[in-house]
Nucleic acid binder design. Sequence first.
DNA 1: AGCACGATTAACT
DNA 2: GTTAATCGTGCTC
Length: 193
Amino acid sequence: MPRLPRAFFARPTLVVARELLGQRLVCLRNGRRLSGLIAEAEAYIGENDLACHARVGRTPRNEVMYGPPGYAYVYFTYGLHWMLNCVTERDGFPAAVLLRVIVPDGGVEIMRRLRGQAPEARLANGPAKLTQALGIDGELDGHDLCARGAKLFIERAALPPDSRIIARPRVGLGDTPEPWKSKAWNFRWLISD
DNA sequence: AGCACGATTAACT
DNA sequence: GTTAATCGTGCTC
């Protein structure tokens, strides 16, 4: 299957977040292939978005978000969790899509080893579970998802129809001010009937 | 140098 | 519904 090229990510973040649904996230780990279909993603767009890490301006932590599209922005939070994002838009504009949920479809036994016993559907149904299931941590911050030989990339797969996608407010924003807190920038693929 | 808190999760009541 | 775990980051002093 072809991999998503940089041009895919070099577009408005809301479009990228929406079109990442259904695509296959792949991580190559010790020669093994771990993968899953992206089922939930959400957009963080620029310094004006008060929920985005770029709200404080350019810092060492969010530096990758300011760079060119098609790179992984991986950050650490809550003292124990890693989060995986895909950088979007043009070089110099800080924006990214947080990958929140994948449905495992390859390398499930290895994911179970990394995550512990869990039903397949709950192996990677959260942003921190996803990174744990794939063995992703800060070493992949700044990784080029579009490079030949990338360890982490996204394969083209079928795009879900609009009727199976819902948009809702982003998760876990706490005291983020309006209107940012309520913007429906989280996209979810309704898989089950 | 010190501090409050976070794009979360699992294990509780 | 509530809470502890746990530490890098950015802000204040």
